[in-house]
Design a protein around this nucleic acid. Structure first.
Lengths: 341, 341
DNA sequence: TTGTAAGCGTTATCAG
DNA sequence: CTGATAACGCTTACAA
């Protein structure tokens, strides 16, 4: 009737508590035959372990480290804020969290940081950095040391990460493309800007965007991506130049960070009102621009969900339990003026 | 250094474990002075109770009942499916769930069901029914009996419910209005359909929709709502009639259930391709219509989130703990062909 | 290879 | 009014 406990299993299998525990936790020193007896009992009674009681007995603490980009970025700022907020909630129960930041543009520094992680005292890592061969190696090393690794926001598709928590960039780009096409009824050119096309995410977004534009909206012509290299001044300058020199531009797709200088340039061009602007990530800048009808839509991912999901998944992986996919799937949010959270 | 436990409190206050427990759980039979001593120790050490250990010792089970609409509705079907899925996950730990269904159009039956709930064996109820004075009384009665009550999907704004889990209908209507306006560049009429304007949700959606249309898109004229009264044949018939007789219709806003007969009528009219259709809730029907480019956008709420949130909130309320708002806020999802989950 | 007994942080049942 | 003490379901020395 009631949920069976280890005691019930012990009785049913005719062994002691300790033996049941050994089998349950796959600890050595049990005869095949005994293992079978216990597993039989587990099956028959439909035993499922009470993780909370187990953690209590074990005084388990989960040691997780988040590796995030350093430097000023509105998106990572909101991410860090969400992390902080989650830390003081039930979600973070029994979790000892450390956050380290790395300079995104210094692959060596990233790898150094990853290597410096003390795998012995670590249960899991959530990593948000671009994938390089060195990062791939560092991930493999962590995995070998028994650390669970999840990729956050940017996937590490060729690495041995256990899980990716974020949205598919191609699908996100396709969503932007569909909105752009639907929101622009006439023909014209679409300006595509990003901080850097060397980032895989930008490449994939561009790919998805182009797929939909060329397939469903051939009346629109997506221009070659222009890159700011994270230089606000440069971003503002080249945006203004292109906008000025191309009167056929009817839309702007901002794939990466740097929406503040972009918007600033568009404002100065005095053509913002006739342009359909779509950008990524909900930040103070994009939020304000949505309210002011300057940006038509923002493609976003819920950062709160992102960090809570990361913690839950790292914990679940650490316990070798199955992941509840439906709860963890990060959705591609479309945000307009009226559904701002 | 480590998190303080009841033992630490007992030592610090110079009392026994049992007394600490009595104070912590506000049980009677402790002198004022002793209470003060214990509370002082709690403050000083920054004690926070380990809910899991507490539940273990108490062998606590949470008894929750969901009261949902009966009868065939794709939306409530997905809701029930999500509920079932959540039941077999960690979320449902220690929760004993019961689902009862009620005929939405029979206020008496609803109240009878609500009254028949055994408040003594119940910790919380999640209710999804229209608000009536009788429902309000029944909710008050449950509250008086110490049962936690949350409104699900449809708020019970004038009742004593502890919490509302769902999206604001006015904001949802405004979102639909904004999308409609942005997606239709010319002037024309917008057909608004629902199953019944007697539902508060439909009223509010209409209200929000009209606000945005009249304020931002005066070129569009939203026609008076037509109602199907949950009669599929009627829905199909009157939709076809209106569509045929009004060539100026450029958009259709479907506020309620019944998207299958609506779409069927639109298809037969052969004007679907030129119409911008926006509807609510992601169901098999709307999902397919999105993929076929028949519906431009769906305004939805994540049913998985809805039911998990309901369980978490009922549990949190039962334990008199603070609710983690950021996690529980249900967002107004905009779904198009490319961001279908 | 297996079993006994203590303990994790909390609650509950008795006595005192 | 207060305090020992056992229990919840599980893990883990330490014995056997």
């Amino acid at each position: 009737m009631n949920k069976p406990t280890v005691h019930d299993i012990a009785k049913e299998a005719g062994v002691s508590l300790a033996t049941v525990d050994r089998v349950l936790n796959a600890r050595p020193g049990v005869r095949e035959k005994t293992i079978a007896k216990v597993q039989g009992a587990v099956e028959r009674l439909g035993y499922v372990r009470d993780t909370y009681a187990a953690n209590l007995a074990r005084q388990r603490l989960y040691h997780f480290t988040f590796v995030l980009p350093e430097g000023p970025s509105q998106f990572t700022d909101t991410l860090k804020a969400a992390l902080k907020e989650a830390t003081s909630s039930q979600i973070a129960d029994r979790i000892v969290l450390k956050v380290v930041t790395v300079p995104l543009h210094d692959p060596h520094a990233i790898v150094r940081t990853l290597r410096s992680l003390n795998a012995a005292r670590l249960d899991g890592v959530a990593i948000m950095v671009p994938e390089t061969p060195q990062v791939r190696d560092a991930v493999a090393r962590l995995k070998d040391a028994g650390v669970k690794v999840v990729a956050l926001v940017s996937d590490l598709p060729n690495s041995a990460r256990d899980y990716f928590i974020g949205i598919n960039s191609i699908a996100a780009g396709r969503t932007a493309g569909l909105l752009m096409g639907r929101l622009i009824p006439r023909e014209g050119e679409v300006l595509v800007v990003t901080n850097s096309m060397r980032s895989r995410d930008s490449l994939d977004r561009r790919l998805g965007f182009d797929q939909v534009i060329s397939n469903d909206f051939p009346r629109l012509k997506a221009l070659p991506s222009i890159e700011s290299y994270d230089d606000a001044e440069r971003m503002e300058k080249i945006t203004r130049e292109v906008i000025m020199s191309r009167p056929d531009i009817v839309g702007v797709y901002s794939m990466g960070a740097g929406n503040m200088p972009l918007l600033s340039a568009l404002r100065k061009s005095e053509r913002l009102a006739e342009l359909v602007v779509i950008s990524h990530e909900l930040t103070p800048a994009t939020r304000q621009a949505l309210m002011d009808n300057e940006i038509a839509a923002v493609i976003a991912q819920n950062v709160g969900h992102l960090v809570r999901s990361a913690m839950r998944i790292l914990r679940t992986l650490s316990d070798d339990l199955p992941i509840f996919e439906a709860q963890e799937r990060i959705r591609i949010d479309i945000i307009v003026r009226e559904n701002l959270p």
